[in-house]
Write a protein that binds this DNA or RNA. Sequence first.
DNA 1: CACCAGGGCGCG
DNA 2: AAAGCGCGCCCTGGTG
Length: 803
Amino acid sequence: MPLNPQAKALWDQIRDPNCEACPLHESAQTVCLVGDGPVPARYMVVGEAPGYREDEVEKPFAGKSGQFLDEVLEQVGLSRKDAFISNVAKCRPPANRTPTRTELKACRPYLDAEIEAVKPELILLVGNAALNLIKKSGITKHRGEVFKYGDATVLPTVHPAAVLRNPNYDAVFRTDLATFSRMVRGEPGATPTRTFLVRNPRALTATCRSILTAPAVAYDLETTGTEEYEEDAKIVTVGISPKPGIAFVVPIHHPESRWKDPDKVLRAIGHALMFTKAKVIAHNAKFDDRWMTQFDIPIHSDFDTMIAAHLLDENRFKSLKFLAQLILGVDPWADVDLGGGGALTTALSKLARYNAKDADYTLRLYYHFREELTSTGNERTLRLFVKLLMPASKALTTIERTGMWVDQERLLTRRLELDKRLATVDERLTELTGQKANWNSPQQLAKILFSEMDMTVWELTAKGAPSTREAVLLRLSKEHEVPKLILEWRSLSKNKSTYLDNWLELLSSDSRIRTHYKLTGTVTGRLSSGKEHQKARGINVQQVPRDKFIRGIIGAPPGWKFLEADFSQIELRIAAHYSQDPTMIRLFQLDEDIHLATAVKMTRKQPHQVEPEERKKAKAVNFGFLFGMGWRKFIDYARDNYDVEVSDIEAERFRDDFFATFTKLRAWHERQRRLVRNYSKVQSLIGRVRHLPDILSQDEEVRKEAERQAINSPVQGLASDLMLLSLSILHEQMPVDEAKIVGTVHDSILVEVRDDVVDKWSKTIKHTMENLPLKRTFGVELTVPIKVDVKVGQHWGEGELYG
DNA sequence: CACCAGGGCGCG
DNA sequence: AAAGCGCGCCCTGGTG
């Protein structure tokens, strides 16, 4: 029963203890548990569904997450007793299941009745299910946006239970509650943006003058939702903020733009940005710089607020919307709804407001991050930002624009070949199983293999269905032809859909495909690659199969060669440096192959008999043990990949052997564990930090995971930073008519080199990457030699080793 | 038609 | 005692 006397009346009035509108009534102890609190109330908090405790004591938010919610409410100056607290679902779902959309729909009348009685001005929604109130889903996307529901203003945030599980959400949750509290008290957020629409020559001149005279200026583009190189690509408006709180918005190709020559206006703004002494700031500068360059304004921003945010805390969300609320304390705002037609069909006044906010907030964030980066204790981070990340971002801007050349003839013929082979496999499968099925469907396949053909179920998926993953089918292949054919089908169909079909579709008129590299896409500092945003299509060049049939479609156009420069065994070399293991260091000084040694041990072959594929698998074993793999997983690994049954004792001995060979690895692991336990973070040789708040978790498994990450991150991060440093140095050295960088895959750099200068550039690239100026740039040195393999050919993956 | 989670698998 | 790390895309099938 509700504690609040006013809610009691409500409880009697709208509650139906015999409700059978959805299946949830079957599992709930208390059916139709309505909310609790004052009626009416100024604000409501709406959660997902009653939990175990709530069901028992008949009170919403009674468990652990409820306590946490109360705590944070208190901290932001609100009190639970002023709030009416309820849930979108009124019955407790069976253990650990969120209510379905159908169930929520059935429950809606009760919630609506509550809202009508409580008459809240503000509603805080907590958790994804609660978003159902406003017919949305995707809480991490919509949190911190404001919505209306009837007369009430609605603010969604993450669920307190999510915060308790994942500390990364803590900042988000507190920010949103602080905002909510401000809204409840009717206080405005930080200074709003004063927007000036630039629509006449005098205003344009004033804007340019402000760009030229300000110490720092932020810019932000609104564009058509296309790739910048597409035919109908247009810059719609430019937002300029020369001073916090102020932004000029210049319409360019917006239909309401009144300029006679919009391109000339863009040039005027662009030239001011190019020639100003001011620091040019942007959020995700690579995007805006690329667009400007496409329209003949080659600018490279000096300061990217997104990169700064990521470098200072790799775990937080990097969107401008989030950072502005978290750091600047501005009021929440919803992304501009561009509708079907993109920025072009959005009213100029509306578009300008958003554009202005973005530019203004970017500038304000710049002043904040500049302060943070130059404060005591952040010297190494500042150096990384200035000497490594911003130059790398500049190089990537060009690399993304260049794209990778595709051999169209190979692409077309190989695609047809795949079609033919797929048809053959399909025919044979139909013959063997006696039916037509969708071979891509794990569900249909499981039915055929395990119900109809009665094969052994070796493994279950996370959800308890019989797994049809590769390792399982491989085991079944020994006795049946069908699983073997399925594996072939999967490989062929993945090659076709993920790679060849996509490449053909995304091929530009210059026979190139393009990707987007994210400098802020991973927690370790590696690049991620793929599409620009969720709705776009795009390719990931980091997962192109090594299979020559696929990889060999990418290459260099006639008159040029394709060069791949690869850091050899870079992560092991870095681990050798960190651990100072004498055996590892000696092996690298003698230039011996550690992966080959492991492959020899596992296959019991002579070194020269080891297949490249076997060496590649040994590589995974070395990395596995190096980064904390246990002997149990090793048994699975050996079975799935080598078809070798290893006993528990053998597996343990194999692992012991590894650590007996490299005696100092254990001490290094221990040091990393100690560091992360003491400081909740670790850092790489050149100062890139990985924050690991999970080390404070109550859950031992989670803590152990953080410890393994503490071992892995400084290795993976440094390897990647060496690549980024190479990228920026090489990019500055290369004249585009001789050589151009076209891509990078973690520890390798892909370059197109003109035929007649291949020798010169092979040599220069190798030398540059093997002799990076670590001492001069970061004041540190590596105690192991760095080795780079350069391969040159006409196509990717088909090159000959240089030198 | 849009969105989402899960399964599966490509890469380093 | 037990423990690899880091990513992104395609497809299916459920749901609204």
